[in-house]
Amino acid sequence: MGVSGTGKSEIGSRLAARLGVEFVEGDADHSPANIAKMAAGIPLNDEDRHGWLLLLQARIGKAADEGRGLVLSCSALKRRYRDILRGGDPNLAFVHLAGDRELIAARMLARRGHFMPMTLLDSQFRDLESLQDDERGIRVDIRLPSEAIIEQLMQSFQND
């Protein structure tokens, strides 16, 4: 979880490979209308996200029902969004990839071919609600090299 540009796709896919489980890029499940809205620089609201979150919840629930692991990348910015996702599996753990605005902005400016414009970064930071004490998860500093993040996550999950 985290705002756009934190490396959710990269870290998620690498973590899934390391764990030997499926990786799902949550952005792939956004509706064409949501993608068009974001590409136009218009932030999604709770109503826009609701159907998307329910699709992700179903993916999480299916994996849990089948007893298989899953790593899913998505913003999950607000507690209520994470509550919807937890509806698929109450044992769901979150990895909050966190960093300061300047670093994330630089990363967003450097990437190509992503629908999320830089202009939406501030709205994402406004919506971001950090993990709360009663939420299962870990906050990770994105200034760390990717491999160090993966090692930190592996140790965290082994001790969980």
Rank of each mutant, 00 (worst) to 15 (best):
R18L: 08
L19H: 08
L19D: 08
L19R: 15
E22I: 10
E22F: 04
E22W: 02
F23Y: 14
G26F: 03
A28Y: 01
A28W: 00
H30I: 04
S31C: 06
P32Q: 12
P32F: 11
A33F: 06
A33M: 10
I35W: 04
A39Y: 09
A40I: 11
G41A: 11
I42C: 07
L44M: 15
L44F: 13
L44P: 08
E47G: 12
E47Y: 10
E47K: 13
D48E: 13
R49F: 09
R49Y: 11
G51F: 08
G51E: 14
G51S: 15
L55K: 15
L56K: 00
L56N: 01
Q57P: 00
Q57R: 15
A58N: 11
R59C: 00
R59Y: 00
I60C: 00
G61P: 04
A63M: 04
A63Y: 01
A64R: 15
A64E: 08
D65V: 00
D65Q: 14
E66F: 02
G69C: 10
L70S: 05
V71I: 07
V71K: 07
L72N: 03
S73G: 13
C74M: 01
C74L: 02
S75Y: 06
S75K: 04
L77P: 10
R79F: 10
R79C: 09
Y81T: 02
Y81K: 02
Y81L: 04
Y81G: 01
I84D: 02
R86N: 04
D89W: 07
N91Y: 01
N91C: 05
N91V: 00
N91E: 14
L92Q: 04
L92N: 02
F94T: 06
V95G: 03
L97T: 07
A98K: 09
A98D: 14
G99S: 06
G99Q: 04
R101P: 03
L103M: 13
L103R: 04
I104M: 01
A106N: 08
M108D: 01
L109I: 11
A110V: 01
A110F: 00
R111K: 06
H114Q: 09
P117G: 10
L120D: 03
L121V: 03
L121Q: 04
D122T: 09
D122L: 06
Q124M: 08
Q124I: 05
F125A: 05
E129S: 11
E129D: 14
L131R: 07
L131I: 09
Q132V: 12
Q132M: 14
